[in-house]
Amino acid sequence: MAEVRLSRKLAVEFLGTAALVFCGPGTAAATFMVGRSTGVPFSMAQLGVIALAFMMVIVAMIYTIGHISGCHINPAVTVALAAARRTPWSEVPGYLAAQFAGGVAGAFAIWSVLEQRGLDAGLGVLSYVPGHARSAFCAELIGTFLLVLVVFGTTTDSRATPGWYGLAIPSIVFAVITVVGPVTGAALNPARYLGPMIARAVLGAGKGLLWNQVPVYVAATFAAGLLAAGAYAFLGGVSAPRSPQLQKAGPKPRPKADRKPTATREWPRRQDVTTVDAAAMQAWIGAAAQLMDDNAQYLTHLDAVIGDADHGTNMRRGFQAAAVLVDDPASITPGAVLDIAGQAFMSNLGGAAGPLYGS
């Protein structure tokens, strides 16, 4: 799979964050505009519309730029992924710069559409009631923690149900906004929070902005991301490795730089037998699991062209499960090994792959 240039990743992170701010805080500003003109007081109905706007734009961005940059569009997510070694630290400064710049650009886009009325409606700027910093910090901490935890559970773990991250992540955002929104406005994202504030200040409407609240929002969201990364690692976010016996039986992993699809593979053989026995079958399944692990990214890249970009993680999960289960002393015949492997495929491979490989 060809590596995407960092410049392209940063470009789509900028666009994705700008879209998030334009559609999310933009909906908030538009809602306040309509409320002022109609005299309708703000209620949970309006909050639900705002939460839905955030949810839908995140769904759209995940499937638009997720395969290019990972669709972080949130500095707290980027730092958390880097802390968990899921994103190179060398890319973090560029990601953060692109996201914060995108947040400001998205706020200016709101102003370009809603003009002075949007500016008067707040441009999506958030604040909490002065004197309630503790509850505001807790609200942002808990809300962002849940968001980042779902990100880790659905996108970094090969055991996760494939293909559902595009709904799971936006769904937790919707749910959190309905609870946290009345307290802090539910930033959950430093770029979303600071973008509208900076734009308002530049546009000459900075009077009344509560800059003293910035540390609460920023500290809570970044801290929550790091806590979520640690919590998911503790709760078992890393897939269980194959047993030492199977690792020994299979071919040695190649260096990452050399992991490319190969046309042929030297399968492990027992030199002292001429028939296929259970041990040889176990070794073959272990080798196949290693092969799937080596080429998971390549398979996902191929699937992204015509499918939902989950084939690599799907196959890796199924074969790893099979490799662990067949390493059982009770598997004394080749048929028993294949039967166990088939059941593992049926239980762990999603879509049509389960019945196909399981049978």
Rank of each mutant, 00 (worst) to 15 (best):
M1P: 11
K9H: 04
T17P: 06
L20Y: 07
V21Q: 07
C23P: 04
G24F: 03
P25T: 04
T27W: 00
V34Q: 10
G39M: 12
P41R: 14
P41V: 07
A45D: 09
A45W: 14
G48F: 04
V49K: 02
A51W: 10
A53G: 14
F54K: 09
M55E: 02
M56I: 07
V57Q: 03
I62N: 13
I62E: 12
G70N: 09
C71A: 15
P75L: 09
P75K: 12
V79M: 12
L81V: 07
A82L: 03
A82I: 06
T87G: 00
T87I: 13
S90F: 06
P93H: 08
P93F: 04
G94F: 05
A97N: 08
A105T: 11
A109I: 04
G118W: 01
D120T: 10
G122T: 02
G124C: 00
G124N: 04
V125P: 04
L126S: 06
V129M: 00
P130D: 11
S135C: 04
S135T: 08
F137V: 05
C138L: 13
E140C: 04
L141I: 07
V151P: 12
T155Q: 09
Y165D: 08
L167M: 10
A168I: 03
A168M: 06
S171N: 03
V176Y: 03
V176Q: 05
V179W: 07
G181W: 01
P182Q: 13
V183I: 15
V183A: 08
T184D: 06
R192Q: 13
R192D: 11
R192G: 12
R192E: 09
L194A: 10
G195E: 12
I198K: 08
A201G: 02
K207L: 00
L210I: 07
A219F: 11
A220K: 13
A220R: 10
F222N: 01
F222R: 07
A229M: 13
G230A: 09
G230W: 14
A231Y: 12
L235A: 15
G236Q: 08
P244K: 13
L246M: 12
Q247W: 03
Q247L: 14
G250F: 14
P251D: 13
K252A: 14
K252T: 12
P253H: 05
P253T: 07
A257K: 08
A263R: 13
R265M: 10
W267C: 00
D272V: 00
T275I: 07
D277W: 02
I285T: 02
I285D: 01
Q290L: 11
T300A: 10
D303L: 06
V305G: 08
G307L: 05
D308V: 00
N314E: 01
R316C: 12
Q320P: 00
Q320C: 06
A323I: 11
L325W: 02
D328W: 01
P334C: 06
P334D: 09
G335D: 05
V337L: 03
A341L: 01
A344Y: 02
M346G: 00
S347M: 10
G350Q: 10
G351L: 05
A353F: 03
